[in-house]
Structure formats: C-alpha cells, structure tokens
Amino acid sequence: MTVLYIGNHTSSSKGYAAMARQIIKNGGNTFAFFTRNPRGGKAKAIDETDIQNFLVLAQENHFGKIVAHAPYTLNACAAKEELRTFARETFADDLRRMEYTPGNYYNFHPGSHVGQGSEIGIQKIAEILNDVLTEEQTTTVLLETMSGKGTEVGRNFEELRKILNLVEKKSKMGICLDTCHVWDGGYDIVHDLDGVLNDFDHIIGLERLKAIHLNDSLNDCGSHKDRHARIGERKIGMEALVRIIKHPALREIPFILETPNDDSGWTEEIHVLKEAFYK
C-alpha cells in the first residue's frame, strides 16, 4: 500500500521525542524542524536518551524520513567572508549532529548573492558544500527551490542544476521542492503539473527530488514574493495540492506543511489531505 508521509514544521526546543509525540497527535508521520534558532546561534546540546526515545517512537509509528532545516541566516554565497565562515561552520556542525538520526534529510536555502551575480553565488555555494560534505555521512543535503525574490539563488531549476554540477559528492545531494516557492517563481503547478515535473526531470532528475514543502500561496504565479498560505485557501488551491500528493512520481516522499498555522490548524490540514489521498 502506498503511504502518504505528511507532517508539519515544528519546534525543536523540547527535543526529538517531544516533536515526534506532537506530530503523532497532529496525525502526521514525518516532520521538519530547525537544527537551531532560525536566526542562528548555538545549537542545543544533543540528549542521547531523547534521541533513542525518538527513534523508538519513529519506528513504532512508521515514520518517513524527517527533514531538518538550516537556520535562515546561513548564506553560503554571502559577500562578506565572516558570513560564509558562519555558514561553513554551522553546516559542518549540523551535519555532525544529524548523524544521531542517520539517513534523514538536511534542507537549506541556497542563499542570496547580494549583488555579486548568480554565477558567483552558485560557485560559492558549491565551494562550501565541497568543504563540508563527507563520504561517511548518511544525511542527504537538500537544496530548496526558491521564489526568486531579491537576489536569491535557486530561483529556477537551471540554477539548482548548476550548483549540483559543481558539487563533488553528488550522491549526498537532493532537492526539496516548495510548492509556494515554485508557483511564485513562475512554475504553473496548477494547470501544468506534469509539464513542471517533466522540466524538473529533464533539468535535474526526479530521482533527486527527496522532499516537498506543501504550501498554498497568497500570490499569483510568477510574483516572486514567497508568501505562504494555508492549504486550499488561496492561489494554488486544494485541487492542485491534492493532485501533487497523489502524483505517481511523488509517492512516498515526505510532504511538510509550512503553512501559517498552529497545531490545531495543521491537524485539520493533515486530516483533510490524508482523507483526499486515501479516497
């Protein structure tokens, strides 16, 4: 039987086991979390007892892969070298910490080139990835698709492909597709989902699509604004989002809700989407 792995972005402040218990309560079987404060700073110490409790809960409740998220302040293509040093050190530290929960995903925003140009930004992102990726790691690092606001790198599939081309340890890399971001970036997933996925497959390869951030959007296609909305309430709509979770090319990868919600709202969204998926 095909399984829908769905959950929401949750707070890591209470530990892995607490995150798992909350997601189970919400009706989910995966989740995303920040490895540290989204605005940066030192990560909370790993509690190995907490990790073991989480691993038991995940196995008992048939969890899919979980998706860690780097802090927003990690900019691998920053113009200032001290910011790139922070990105490199945070990246390396987070990847070490991820090995306590082996075989999962670590997602990050490629960054903003802040006027240097996308080609220089792409080169700088690949340089840091080549510095921090190791043969021994079991974690797959995911580049996130971006909406193209400001000087963001990763505004289209071609830019993500260029980064991957420069990464030496390609087997450690994948993509997280954000539905709001690609819609705002100009990919019409409402009227031409198959066409968008075909483009992705031709440019990047569907085998590299490891996770999806499932969000509606406040804006029209191609707005380049990145404004998330609750499932089915705005421009993408419920029918299109259900087509995404049911698409045969996207089966059994984690879907993460990053909608503007609380736990009761995510519980309702998970219930509605699971009901539609298994209908």
Rank of each mutant, 00 (worst) to 15 (best):
S12R: 13
D201K: 12
N26A: 14
H62F: 10
T49A: 14
E89T: 13
G150L: 13
N29K: 08
F277R: 11
A32F: 05
N130Q: 11
T134S: 14
V182H: 02
D131F: 14
I163S: 04
G15Q: 05
Q137H: 10
M19T: 07
A68P: 00
S12W: 08
I66G: 01
H228A: 04
I175C: 01
C77M: 12
E275H: 11
D220C: 06
N261Q: 15
Y5K: 05
G154S: 11
A126V: 06
M19L: 06
K274G: 08
V190C: 07
F157C: 05
A79V: 14
H62K: 14
N156T: 11
R227G: 02
Y100H: 15
T145I: 04
F200M: 12
I245D: 07
S112E: 11
H202Y: 10
I203G: 07
R21T: 00
Q52I: 03
D131T: 13
K210R: 13
P102E: 06
A45L: 09
N61M: 08
D188Y: 02
I253R: 02
E269S: 10
P110A: 00
K274A: 00
F157H: 10
D188R: 11
F34W: 04
E258S: 09
Y278S: 08
E269M: 00
P254I: 03
G174M: 01
L95I: 07
P71E: 05
L143K: 09
Y5D: 04
G7V: 09
A211P: 02
F91I: 04
R161A: 14
K170M: 00
F86W: 05
S264M: 14
N75V: 01
